[in-house]
Amino acid sequence: MHIPDGFISPKVYIPLYGISAGLWAYGLRKIKKKLNEQAIPFVASLTAFCFVAMMIAIPLPGGTTAHVTSVALLAVVFDIWTAFLSVSLVLFINAVLFGNGGITTLPVNALGIGFIGSVVAFYTFKTLSRWKKTVALFAAGWLSINISALAIAVVLGVQPLMGRSEDGSPLFFPFGLSVTIPALIIPHLLIGIGEGILTVVVYKFLERTFSEIFHER
């Protein structure tokens, strides 16, 4: 979801930057504890991975394609923090290093797609994998994208409450929750299938051909 800068109020993106910064520091400390000096190269390499993964479009039933985030995959293969930090860094690199904009939407996407997405994927997989692994993987991918979309829809949908000009017209994103939630959720019900397929297919491929990767956890 590429939302240009200017639709989110500073009353929202400044506190969200604060929350993100706290979680970034905590996540990096967690990874450093586990991997010691390999932590920084590890996060950097997985960021590069996440970047190319986002270029890939998955064919969906019906002939369309959907771009994926690979958040669920990273969360179930590694952990929540690796997924969250990689996604956040991709957003940062895209916004600032490659100059594609999105400096005010960065914390929204980082928390929505990166943090909430990987938490949902990780726990969905953990809960369901005892029962049926394939279902657990698909659900992790599909659900993580949909909950992320819901979170972003909520952030967009509360923008009309963040202030109005004298004539009563909005200042930021103009539509409320009753519009943003269906507008984001309905397409993601379909797009999520791509993320679900990716998570299942790649996880199984890894198990078959490259199971050592799971020791990296």
Partner: peptide, 8 residues
């Protein structure tokens, strides 16, 4: 994806 994951 496996190639890139392995490479990373």
């Amino acid at each position: 994806i496996c190639f890139f994951l392995n490479k990373s």
